[in-house]
């Protein structure tokens, strides 16, 4: 089973920035992003999230998000997608970084989830 990371933010640059930060420690982990609305305004897009899930090379997805509608749109995509998506209500930057570093180190999902637990903020 391979895992990939999905970063969903209201702002394209935030999603790109988190990707830049975590890719540095996770060269072999598939990471895709969905930042902003379809026209790159502030918000989230079901189309962008769906495409980021489909293009992610991981068999299962660990998803991290910032605010309100990001979670609701992720939930909608989860209901429609064939891929298993694990959604974490944790701080976006710290959570995605933790998952990336541990996946790169070859840790299993229960270990990663244990490390994510204290980062839960929503």
């Amino acid at each position: 089973m391979s895992y990939g990371i999905l970063v969903v933010s209201h702002v394209k640059e935030i999603a790109d920035g988190v990707l830049k930060l975590i890719a540095q420690v996770a060269a072999d982990v598939p990471i895709t992003t969905a930042g902003g609305t379809d026209d790159d305004g502030i918000g989230t897009s079901v189309a962008k999230i769906t495409s980021a899930v489909e293009h992610n090379e991981g068999d299962e997805i660990l998803a991290f998000y910032d605010l309100g509608s990001a979670k609701m749109n992720l939930d909608m995509v989860m209901e429609l997608s064939d891929k298993k998506i694990h959604l974490y209500n944790v701080a976006l930057v710290e959570g995605a970084y933790t998952a990336a570093a541990l996946l790169q180190a070859g840790q299993d999902l229960p270990t990663i989830e244990k490390q994510l637990q204290p980062l839960k903020i929503k």
């Binding site: 609305t37 379809d38 305004g41 918000g43 989230t44 897009s45 079901v46 189309a47 309100g68 509608s69 609701m72 749109n73 939930d75 909608m76």
Partner: peptide, 15 residues
């Protein structure tokens, strides 16, 4: 609505 709104109103009215 789901594909065009881009804020919380999208998934909410869409649902």
């Amino acid at each position: 609505i789901i594909s065009k709104v881009g804020g919380a109103a999208g998934p909410l009215y869409g649902t």
